[in-house]
Design a protein around this nucleic acid. Structure first.
Lengths: 342, 342
DNA sequence: AAACTCCCCGAAAACCTTTTCGGAGAACGT
DNA sequence: ACGTTCTCCGAAAAGGTTTTCGGGGAGTTT
């Protein structure tokens, strides 16, 4: 097989090649390269030199067959295009990379058939474990217990309580948002949410309302559900203003919605944060930093989620499995849209 | 090792297990399952049934060691967080998934040391080929010719002409933008670009200016370089308006910049697209669909780029290597910000 | 009945590495 | 000189699968 430089692509250099050239057996070569005892110093350096010269790279596959561990984990996502899979994937890649694990990536695109197909592919490659990243925060069907390796679910929890899942704490995120608004002196708070079909939307509302009622307050007007778009944010903000409730803060279901809300407020001559404070969720860099004013938001810590999922997976591989759902603590990020005097 | 359901995690079921239970040799079992000849029909179904019952999954690693092909490609990215790696990765994943290839993902984060480390890891796993996704459109150092498997570079071309690279055609994108503006009757066109350090910015300017001069026109004012942000777009638009050049169209270096430009035009009471047409590049969904009006842009076809890179890699693996840089044709996406009468 | 053909199956090698165990040779003590 | 202890190295097996080749048995022909 020709190489890009025109020379024939030779098969990969093997330990046998090294041993032969060094005039020793493969066993000795192996011991020399792995720092085992029972090798004379000069023999060791000779082998090492030849290995380096030949560019010898041990065949991980062969090692894996011996060890019964491949040092590989499967990462099955269902929504690569979405904004959420990526940071999770980064966190997981980060955690695995540090521990000399490799990541086999596959995207099922929310299709159960494809998921089954990829699952078999991963198992065929003898992955040591699998992380499944869902496409929404709603529980998703478990892969089942017949899977012979540990599985950790991220973002979307498994519907089986025996499985281990890592999710975003949307209730807590809602709490953080309202706690912050109250702390900055807001009292008349409206809530513009996203798609009514998403559990995340309801969880955030629940957390927000909870803190409100603990403070002896009630939300201004009903929660407005729509879609996760700027356009909906603009429309909903008009509704809020037109119902004339004398609002001094608006919690928005996402940064995108918040952007739309800011647009309408600006058009109507409402000062942010002077007259009304606005908050989003997600801490989507491009959204929050580009807005006028910059947007206070709650970061759901997806990267931490991915790292945590990887940690739980490693623990399970190591014989210490976990069960149930673990929530990641979100983080408040204060910017101009709520900061009085900025 | 305990399983999530409490039972001991047994080692994976092997072909020998199947053969034993079926009362045949492993050789026969292999032939039966792989549809080879020389197996009596009833023997074949018996083996198949037992394999299914045991949930037998052939060990791809063992197969790979025989075949010398692992059916795995490495995908080395340098900027997972960026917007560009992801669609490329999707396209590549898409292309490989269809051909029963698996993707080993690793992120070098632009660090040469980490890149070297991951390269060794990939080679140790005997990947059949590697796709390297750069973090900018500027040429990047080649992995070198000592790599024993084919390599294809995506987004950022290799600095070695012998390597195969797939890149975005930013010059053509600039041409498309101005061609469209001219076709819709614009004549006085300004250009607000992004970070002056990026080759992509200059390429787009070159394409745009080229078409302008072919039409006997010249750009209005100098190209304004700044950063790839909305904030810069707002600032630059003020500059353009203040220099009073009677502009009827603004080409923006990215969708984000275009968003900022739209903001300023709106503040100044300039009608888009009535008075001034605005265009961006990238077709970043969240940016173009949320803007008022929706944003005409040029899609760089990153997903196609990823797919194409995978195709070239497969061809190279197959003994048909390619050399040099291949550019992906961008695609004009017309929306409200340039559409007269919308 | 002997020879031949055909169908099915199993033994063994190959892929590459690691580990165990035993053996060869040298150095040492008596 | 002989036995003992070390030091260093190699043979072999293991891991799971595929492929080749040879052999055994049954059926068919002369």
């Amino acid at each position: 097989m020709p190489r890009s430089d025109g020379t024939a692509r030779s098969r990969a250099v093997t330990l046998r090649d090294v041993a032969q050239l060094a005039g020793v057996s493969v066993a000795t070569a192996s011991k020399a390269l792995n720092g085992r005892a029972d090798v004379r110093p000069d023999t060791r350096v000779r082998v090492e030199e030849i290995a380096a010269r030949l560019g010898f790279t041990p065949n991980t596959l062969a090692q894996a067959m011996l060890a019964g561990q491949t040092g590989t984990v499967g990462l099955m996502t269902n929504d690569l295009v979405g904004r959420f899979s990526l940071p999770i994937l980064m966190g997981a890649e980060d955690a695995t990379g540090a521990g000399r694990m490799s990541v086999l990536l596959c995207d099922a695109r929310g299709d159960a058939i494809r998921e089954q197909y990829h699952l078999r592919a991963l198992l065929g490659r003898r992955v040591d474990g699998i992380i499944v990243v869902g496409s929404a925060t709603d529980p998703r069907p478990s892969l089942g217990h017949h899977v012979p390796v540990p599985v950790v679910y991220a973002y979307a929890p498994s519907d089986d309580a025996q499985d281990a899942s890592v999710v975003a704490d949307n209730v807590r995120a809602g709490e953080l948002a309202v706690e912050h608004l109250l702390a900055t002196g807001r009292r008349r708070i409206a809530h513009i949410s996203g798609d009514v079909a998403y559990a995340a939307a309801h969880d955030r509302v629940r957390g927000a309302d909870q803190v409100l009622s603990e403070a002896g307050l009630t939300r201004v007007g009903p929660v407005l559900f729509g879609s996760w778009t700027e356009s909906w944010g603009r429309t909903a903000a008009q509704i809020v203003l037109d119902q004339g409730g004398d609002v001094d803060a608006i919690v928005c279901g996402s940064d995108q919605i918040a952007r739309g809300v800011l647009d309408t407020l600006r058009d109507r001559g409402v000062d942010v944060p002077g007259d009304v404070a606005v908050m989003g969720f997600d801490n989507w860099e491009a959204m929050v930093s580009g807005s006028r004013p910059s947007l206070t938001t709650v970061d759901m810590q997806f990267e931490t989620m991915g790292r945590r999922a990887a940690e739980l997976l490693f623990a399970a591989i190591d014989g210490r499995p976990s069960h149930g759902v673990e929530a990641i603590e979100p983080r408040l990020v204060v910017r101009g849209s709520t900061a009085v005097g900025v």
